[in-house]
Design a binder for these strands. Structure first.
Length: 465
RNA sequence: GACCCCAUCGUCUAGGGGUUAGGACACUGGCCUUUCACGCCGGCAACGCGGGUUCAAAUCCCGCUGGGGUCGCCA
């Protein structure tokens, strides 16, 4: 069997973390099995679907590197086909018109609730003749669902889950305005698209019982189902905007790398022994539904951040420079020339092992390209107090004479100087660090000197004298 | 409320009748060290509770508790 999966978001908001993971799992499953991964926009709710949301979903998917096969399918464009299927069911006596008003249904549910029963449509128009229809009321179309026995889902994650059919009700297929509902559209589209595996959040599990009834009514085979547990916020409650239910692009803007995000999302709810750092290539090779756990997991920003640090350290220096240049240019309102870029590139190995996000990386790299004279922070100022300045002035004399401007040579020079003066190396190094970086924290300072070059280094030292 | 699902360190998880219950993040002690990191070596820390079944239960069964999901002319 050819594996075909799909990610089917409704365009009512950005691509949030839960959706991103669902997309990732579908993508991995398809890639692992050499199948197809399709993208379908579930825009049947015309009122809430927006163009911006569609764009945000595309952007998010692209950023995460989840490439889909074939053209995107917009569900609403199949509305006619969906309506036809509903009509077919009516003709076959498997669906019917219901003229119940909203108020009527509200009342019905209220009463059921008060009686401690499951709230469900009671089938009041199931067997009534159309001649009884009230005038001027546009009816909805409901499925005449099986009332006896039970419906079972054989779920690849949840196992067999059963529910008595009398818990289910006659769901709406076509709204009063004739447009199809999600329940109808999803079933027809999944069938028409030959979806072999439906992998989605387990908030859809109870919908699936109804959908299975619909598959049966239409005489179609059901796809395989895999309902994956939801992601919760750090406090265990449903992920909300307050927690981290942000769009994928928000994480990009916070300085996260898509590969780190992918690794994190993968590990959230799926495991492969003790493996933590899993490349995408490896993930495709290893991914299987049996590795998905059944319990919900909490979104942990700290772990994502740690993982991001790992991926930053593994990233190519050129790529990182490309990422931070525009950020620094914007913040410092400068234009970074080739010389500046080359400083960043030379310093990158040391820079990248100190950053956990691209934002941090950019900030820690600013001093390399900042305009002279550098702004000194409080701690730098402290390092350049009387004692520090005195040390700096003395050592500067030796630097002036240095002709071999290399990290190792410079370090040896400083060590000898410290030894002669009977002070610790830090006494020599820290004031230089302050002068060159404007801070008390930087990459190894002798490396910074080499990267900056003699002229720039001496210039910055003179600036603080 | 009804129906359904879940339950191992604070978090993500491995294990799935006999383990000193393993790893990772976080926290923490130390080493390295010119700062900050990285790295390395250690530490803290878990099978929700109660009943069974069994020679033996974190693991299987039941109940409880706790958490979650669904119950729309939303998806």
């Amino acid at each position: 069997m050819t594996v075909i999966t799909r990610f089917a978001p409704s365009p009512t908001g950005f691509l949030h973390i839960g959706g991103a993971r669902t997309a990732l799992f579908n993508w991995l499953f398809a890639r692992h099995n050499g199948g197809k991964f399709l993208l379908r926009i579930e825009d049947t709710d015309r009122k809430r679907s927006t163009e911006e949301a569609i764009e945000a979903i595309f952007e998010g998917m692209k950023w995460l590197g989840l490439n889909w096969d074939d053209d995107v399918i917009f569900q609403f464009s199949n509305a006619e086909r969906h309506a036809q299927m509903a009509k077919k069911l009516i003709d076959e006596g498997k669906a019917y018109y219901c003229y119940a008003s909203k108020e009527e249904l509200d009342e019905m549910r209220k009463k059921q609730r008060a009686d401690g029963k499951t709230t469900r449509y009671d089938g009041r128009w199931r067997d009534r003749d159309a001649s009884e229809a009230p005038e001027g009321v546009a009816p909805v179309v409901r499925l005449k669902a099986e009332q006896d026995g039970e419906t079972t889902i054989k779920d690849m994650v949840q196992g067999e889950v059963c529910v008595a059919n009398n818990q289910l009700d006659d769901m709406i297929l076509l709204r009063a305005d004739g447009t199809p509902t999600y329940m109808l559209s999803v079933v027809v589209d999944d069938h028409d698209m030959n979806i072999s595996h439906v992998i989605r959040g387990d908030d859809h599990l109870t919908n699936t019982f109804r959908q299975i009834q619909l598959y049966k009514a239409l005489g179609w085979d059901t796809p395989e189902f895999a309902h994956i547990p939801l992601i919760h916020g750090a406090d265990g409650a449903k992920l909300s905007k307050r927690h981290g239910a942000l769009g994928a692009e928000a994480y990009r803007d916070m300085g996260f790398l898509p590969e780190a995000m992918r690794n994190y999302l993968l590990k959230l709810g799926w495991g492969h022994g003790d493996d933590e750092i899993i490349s995408t290539k490896q993930a495709i090779e290893w991914f299987d539904v049996s590795g998905i756990g059944k319990s919900a997991s909490r979104f942990d920003m700290t772990k994502l951040t740690n993982l991001n640090g790992v991926y930053i350290r593994e990233s190519d220096n050129d790529k990182l420079v490309e990422l931070i240049v525009p950020m620094i240019e914007k913040k410092l309102e400068i234009s970074i020339d080739e010389n500046g870029k080359s400083h960043l590139l030379k310093g990158m190995n040391a820079l990248k092992e100190r950053a956990k996000t691209i934002i941090e990386l950019a900030e820690s790299a600013e001093f390399y390209v900042a305009k002279r004279p550098l702004e000194m922070n409080a701690k730098a100022l402290k390092l350049l107090n009387e004692n520090g300045m005195e040390r700096l002035v003395k050592f500067k004399a030796e630097l002036d004479n240095c002709t071999d401007w290399k990290q190792e040579t410079l370090e040896n020079l400083a060590r000898e100087h410290a030894e002669k003066a009977e002070v610790k190396l830090g006494k020599v190094a820290q004031p230089i660090r302050a002068a060159l970086s404007g801070s008390n924290v930087s990459p190894p300072i002798f490396q910074v000197m080499e990267v900056l070059g003699k002229e720039e280094t001496m210039g910055r030292i003179i600036d603080v004298m």
